[in-house]
């Protein structure tokens, strides 16, 4: 079973994130980039499927040159090869444009399964996997907490608010995974050393047959009209307990409509 894992480099989860003043996109230069945490689970799941039933794991990422760091991490964890879709024309693509570009890039890679993290920690839309499945005409198996691969089929447990659904589909299929699914491995030092020898293909818009006016800021269906900085944290109110602390606390909670 050949698997493509889509990974994304995002600003470090713990860093203060900013939007670029000129085009209101995420400022990716001023902070360190890391692999989107949920994508680590996607990579791990792909590696486990490969270890159990053979095949090849290809990493696909779309992003600026710097994203190669994230590709390298996935290769260090054990993926076999990578495809990097990199083109200035992609800058500012929204979810719809991203799913179009990824679908085109996937057209250049032989695959039975596409695995993604359920969302990225920068945009948090959680729609790309579904859009991608639609564009590829593949089954959509999202929010998986467990994946079982059969002969030409794949079965998942889809996490819901109340429990889980068992969903089965023929391949090819697009799977998005939640963090409950596994414990991602460390990229071992041996893997790190081996990663630099693994094949990495770079694709431009033209290479992937992507129409330039359907991606990037201009090709996106959504535009960010305005942004405002998060208001600074207000100083807390200190209540001195003079025997009436409980009452004051209850008054505060009532005034904020908590009780």
């Amino acid at each position: 079973m050949n698997i493509v894992v889509c990974v994304k480099q995002v600003p470090d989860t713990w860093a203060e994130k900013k939007l670029s003043a000129t085009d209101k996109t995420v400022d990716r230069e001023s902070v360190d980039g890391v692999m989107n945490e949920l994508d680590e689970y996607a990579v791990e799941e792909a590696l486990r499927i490969k270890e159990a039933s053979g095949g090849e794991v290809t990493v696909l990422t779309m992003g600026p040159d710097k994203s190669v760091e994230t590709i390298r991490k996935a290769l260090s964890m054990g993926a076999d090869k990578a495809v990097h879709l990199v083109d200035a024309g992609l800058h500012g693509s929204d979810a719809l444009a991203t799913s179009y570009a990824l679908a085109k890039a996937l057209g250049t890679i032989e695959h039975d399964l596409v695995i993604l993290g359920v969302e990225s920690t920068d945009a948090r839309m959680s729609v790309v996997p579904a859009m991608l499945a639609e564009r590829l005409g593949a089954a959509q198996l999202t929010f998986a907490r467990k994946v079982e691969v059969g002969d030409g089929t794949v079965k998942i447990e889809r996490l819901t608010d109340t429990g889980y659904d068992v969903v089965e589909a023929p391949t090819p299929a697009v799977i998005s995974v939640v963090e409950k699914i596994n414990e991602p491995r460390y990229p071992s030092f041996k893997g790190i050393m081996a990663a630099k020898k693994k094949p990495l293909t770079t694709l431009t818009l033209a290479d992937a047959g992507i129409e330039a006016d359907k991606v990037g800021l201009g090709g996106s269906a959504t535009t960010v009209a305005d942004v405002a900085a998060r208001p600074p944290k207000q100083a807390g109110q200190i209540v001195k307990d003079e025997g009436d602390g409980g009452t004051k606390l209850a008054e505060f909670l009532a005034s904020q409509k908590f009780v």
Binding site: E69, R72, S76, Y186, M193, A195, K196
Partner: peptide
Amino acid sequence: TPERVALRALAREFT
């Protein structure tokens, strides 16, 4: 080097 940057990240994460 990229490999050593990755080794450093691994060492930190492991710790």
